[in-house]
């Protein structure tokens, strides 16, 4: 499944990231394969989402979250 399907407070392990559609910046901010990502909050209109990954607290839009493959923990 991809990250956009995770519900609030669910955690997942990042399996793969689509190199072509994901900016290097996101990876540089700590969103790496192997790391655990947690959805802390989903914005009131269901986009963007607020995640914690690799000790970084980030907000990303769902269209980007779609490009991140995770395995639910």
């Amino acid at each position: 499944m991809t990250l956009n399907f995770l519900k609030k407070s669910q955690k997942g392990t990042i399996i793969a990231i689509n190199a072509d559609n994901v900016p290097l910046k996101l990876i540089e901010m700590g969103c790496l394969p192997g790391n655990i990502v947690e959805v802390l909050q989903i914005a009131p209109l269901s986009d963007p989402i607020y995640i914690k990954v690799n000790d970084s607290f980030l907000s990303i839009r769902k269209d980007l979250a779609k490009e991140i493959e995770v395995e639910l923990i």
């Binding site: 910046k25 970084s56 907000s59 990303i60 839009r61």
Partner: peptide, 9 residues
């Protein structure tokens, strides 16, 4: 192309 990735400080 710019992406929406912001840090929540």
């Amino acid at each position: 192309k710019s992406f929406f990735v912001i840090e929540m400080p």
